[in-house]
Amino acid sequence: MKISRRATLALGGSAALVAMLPLPAFADANDDAIAAFTGGAEMADTGLTLTAPEIAENGNTVPIEVDAPGAVSVMIIATGNPNPGVCTFNFGPLAGNQHAVTRIRLAGTQDVVAVAKMADGSFAKASANIKVTIGGCGG
């Protein structure tokens, strides 16, 4: 098959378009994950505490802590990871308080967001910026 100059230009153009597409889609993944959890509801800025180190030397194990009195579940999102979801804590009827500690992986310096669903159906949000010296996504 003979490739004309016009066909080459069209091909290059469409390739550039495709290459540009994933970027906005990537940024939206975080908002999508939050919307799937809250159903698009408003989020208050108080009622949820996210404790995380300012600087994490090793992105493979970053300790984080959430405290959300009155919450039924708390979702953690790492906005700069290939997949934003980290984990969701669910507090059952016998939970002593709404406090949990775990360790997560971070690909690089980024904001970690926690969204809490309260027993009355409202939502709260907290975020923390964590500087990561060595990313934790293998590679």
Partner: peptide
């Protein structure tokens, strides 16, 4: 009776560690 549960994704560290509290009736 349920105390605590977690849905994990790939971004939880190796050797998953959790600390939480429970009421003992």
């Amino acid at each position: 009776q349920n105390v605590f549960s977690v849905d994990l994704k790939a971004a939880v560290s190796a050797n998953p560690y959790f600390e939480f509290s429970a009421t003992v009736p």
